[in-house]
Design a protein around this nucleic acid. Structure first.
Lengths: 99, 99
DNA sequence: CTGTATCCATCATGATACTG
DNA sequence: CAGTATCATGATGGATACAG
């Protein structure tokens, strides 16, 4: 229950202390729907991974950023990415190069 | 497409160079169905994470073990586990203690 | 024992419309 | 802009039966 295909995309947008508005994330992750973006952000907020900052103004503005704990996922994620990059098949065809 | 709730459970059974039979894994992961166990093992084999060893005998016997690449996931997974264990809420209530 | 095939229930997600 | 509500759909996984 409660999956999350988009959480990783969201985190990548937020890593490095970046602050992004809802519409920023929408544009940066074109394949995600408003519903999913909103839902995953709420879950991540509940899980203490992202912080939601509402600016009381009109039109409304909401910023999202990683919490310290969320930021601290970076090394583990890098380790994972390194593992993926080190897979045996990577020797032969990691990128599709012309020719 | 092609999710995997059980791959982690399978890997934990196989880490440390352990060799397990299909029925071993079934018993070790009670909540998994034959269908899922078989399917996830096939995917992991295709992905180069596990090696499938068929013993030509009757009754049939099939062993599974991690490939070197599969084993090499261990450090990254530990990093992830460490991150989970380090979450802020862990301070207050990591386990449900009576009273 | 070690699977595969089939049917079925559930859930995650997308599309769309609507709101403040 | 930043969402929420609702409906429709396909993926995902469980149960069961069957097979070598």
């Amino acid at each position: 229950m409660l999956e999350g295909r988009w959480k990783l995309d969201i985190m990548f947008q937020l890593f490095g202390g970046h602050v992004r508005r809802f519409s920023d994330l929408e544009r940066a992750i074109p394949a995600v729907s408003q519903k999913m973006l909103s839902q995953q952000l709420r879950q991540m907020e509940r899980d203490g991974i992202v912080r939601r900052i509402v600016h009381p103004q009109v039109p409304p503005r909401v910023d999202y950023e990683l919490t310290d704990w969320g930021q601290s996922l970076c090394p583990a994620l890098d380790a994972l990415l390194g593992w993926v990059a080190a897979r045996p098949e990577a020797q032969a065809s990691e990128t599709k190069e012309p020719g």
